[in-house]
Amino acid sequence: MTITGIAAIGAGLAAIGAGMGIGRIGGSAMEAMARQPEMHGKIQSSALILAAFVEAVALFGVVVAFLQG
């Protein structure tokens, strides 16, 4: 297996982690919105920000994969 292949696997693993993280954020945000529909806007924007933080970690993985590209 070449180094590029290994990098691609690494990027995939990073995507799995971020997927789980964003999934949890999204699920909890939905639940919270259902519980308190009047807080809809605030929950949505915090969920987006948190998703961006989680996503950044996955993107670091993607960038490492790019390093091999």
Binding site: A52, V62, V63
Partner: peptide, 9 residues
């Protein structure tokens, strides 16, 4: 992370 996020997305 700001830089990487926008670029990579």
């Amino acid at each position: 992370s700001l830089m990487i996020r926008l670029f990579a997305n």
